[in-house]
Amino acid sequence: MEESDSGVKYLIGRSAGKSAVIAAFVATHVATMAGLWFGGVRLPQFNFNMLNGWLVLGLTADPVQTFVIGGILHYTSGIIWGVVFALIVHPALGRFIKPLAALTPTNNYIKGVLWGLVLWVISSAFWMPLLIDPLFGGGVVGPFLTKFGLNGVQALFANLLWHSIYGVNLGLLFSPTPAATRGSWRAASGVGVR
C-alpha cells in the first residue's frame, strides 16, 4: 500500500488517477475473461471484444483483426468508465449518501458494486439495443436486453453478472483509505466504523 500527500492512501499507486487506471484495467480484464467463459456455466457467452470490433469494422472483417481492434476499444472504455468512477462518482456517492462517506474498504466496495449496476443499466438499456441491434439488421436485441439472438431474458442477467464482476473488482481494488496512521484504517477511524 502506497501513501500520497493528500492524507489518503491507495491499494495501488500514490494518486487516485493512477490507482483508478490500474484498478479499472484489472476489473475490465477479469470481467472480459469471465464473459468469454460464461458458456462453461450454461450462460450465453459475452464477447465484448468482438461486439466492439464489429461496431467499428463491420461483420465481414477478419475475425482476429476484429477481436484485437475491438479488444483495444473495449479495454479503453472499461478504463475510462473506471476513471470516471474513481474521480467523479466515488467522491460524489460519499457526499450524497452519508453512510458511504467514510473511506473504508467496505464502503469503497459498495460504491464499486453500485457503479457496476449503473453500467449494467447503461449497457442493457442503451448500448446493446441502440448500437448492437442495428448492426445485425434489427430484431436481434430486445428492449433492455430481454432478447439477444437466440437467448431471452437470461442475456440480461448474464450482463448483470458481467457488470457485477467488473464492479466488485473495481470496488475492491480502487480503495482509498485515510493515511493518518500507517498501521490500519481501523486505528484511524475507530473499530466498528462499518
Binding site: R42, Q45, L150, G152, V153, L160
Partner: peptide, 14 residues
C-alpha cells in the same frame, strides 16, 4: 450456442 431454459439460465446468472 442453443440456449436452454430462460428461467434456469437466469437463475444461474443471478
Amino acid at each position: 450456442a442453443t440456449p436452454g431454459s430462460e428461467v434456469g439460465e437466469s437463475l444461474v446468472a443471478i
